[in-house]
């Protein structure tokens, strides 16, 4: 039996009220939250390209370049693995872009990594993981040097945020990991850096609270992947902050593209708003650094 063709469908999605692959391609979808390279997995990424192609994703921004949740700066990563991923990003810059995890509990080392991978390397941004070994959240003043350098380079700044209910007494964010930022942390950071664009990842998970936390900060964009698809989420968010501040993420391979696409397809949006959310806004955020590096926008 031959391998399936990613662009073949036994039934047309159009018969089921869904956009066709051609229509999805026309949306020029840029995925702000791609985990294909999680734990340096080039092979995992290449296997996942079947679904990327099937859905018609135009570009993926990978959040796991040369680092992991337990080792954000990639200290334990082999030099040859780092070299391999660097070459891969250089060779595939038309479809994949890299963000490097940094560690706010190690600001000097984080800045060194930024110099190495962004100023002198192929990457286009930084990522705050959902927690870090030192337990420092993004609102801590130690972050300021990281944000200043990232801003100088026009790097995309993506901050994982969640507010997990729990703890004693039970409260929003009470079950967060050490160093896992909330949207309230992003709001504090945005207050200190009103001219720097920040992406508040996952909309804080508990999105009804997350949107409230950052809505008055116009330099904060919201990405909303990595949680269940709640009908009305995107309508609510657009109503509060406008479609020009939303960025789409796919969170593959661990989340289904269907889950994440449906959040937008569910919403009452104009075509222009849908185009903004699926890629237009991200191209605006990343425009400067992409032009600096000569990457296709």
């Amino acid at each position: 039996m031959s391998a399936p063709d990613p662009v073949e469908f036994a039934l047309s999605p159009a018969l089921y009220g869904l956009p066709t692959r051609d229509e999805l391609i026309k949306l020029r979808i840029w995925d702000m939250h791609y985990h294909g390279f999680f734990n340096a997995g080039i092979r995992q990424h290449e296997e996942n390209l079947f679904y990327v192609q099937r859905i018609g994703i135009e570009r993926m921004l990978s959040l796991d370049i040369a680092g992991s949740a337990s080792d954000p700066l990639g200290v334990e990563m082999k030099a040859e693995d780092k070299q391999q991923i660097r070459q891969y990003l250089e060779q595939h810059s038309d479809t994949v872009s890299g963000l490097i995890p940094i560690d706010p509990s190690q600001p000097i080392e984080s800045c060194q990594k930024i110099e190495d991978w962004i100023r002198r390397g192929p990457c286009v941004g930084i990522k705050y993981y959902g927690g870090n070994p030192g337990g420092v959240v993004c609102s801590h003043p130690d972050n300021d040097v990281i944000i200043r350098l990232a801003a100088e380079l026009n790097a995309v700044i993506y901050i994982h945020t969640w507010s997990k209910i729990g703890g004693q007494p039970r409260r929003s964010g009470g079950d967060n990991l050490r160093g896992e930022s909330t949207p309230m942390d992003v709001a504090q950071l945005a207050e200190r850096f009103p001219k720097v664009t920040l992406i508040c990842g996952h909309s804080g998970g508990d999105w009804e609270l997350g949107v409230r936390a950052v809505r008055r900060h116009e330099n904060v964009f919201i990405e909303f992947s990595g949680s269940d698809p709640h009908s009305g989420q995107v309508d609510f968010t657009v109503n509060e902050i406008g479609a020009s501040r939303l960025v789409w993420g796919g969170h593959g391979p661990s989340r289904s593209y269907s889950t994440e696409l449906s959040k937008v397809l569910d919403a009452d949006l104009s075509d222009a708003e849908r185009l903004q959310i699926f890629g237009g806004n991200l191209r605006r955020i990343a425009g400067n650094i992409f032009r600096q590096k000569g990457y296709k926008l």
């Binding site: 039934l11 999605p13 869904l18 679904y51 698809p229 289904s256 593209y257 696409l261 569910d266």
Partner: peptide
């Protein structure tokens, strides 16, 4: 799980995977 989830989510899952007509 509609209307809590958008029903597009589950419908699209049928197309995201390369399922045969019989499986569909």
């Amino acid at each position: 799980h509609a209307p809590f989830f958008p029903c597009q989510s589950a419908v699209m899952k049928l197309f995201e995977s390369p399922l045969s007509l019989e499986q569909l």
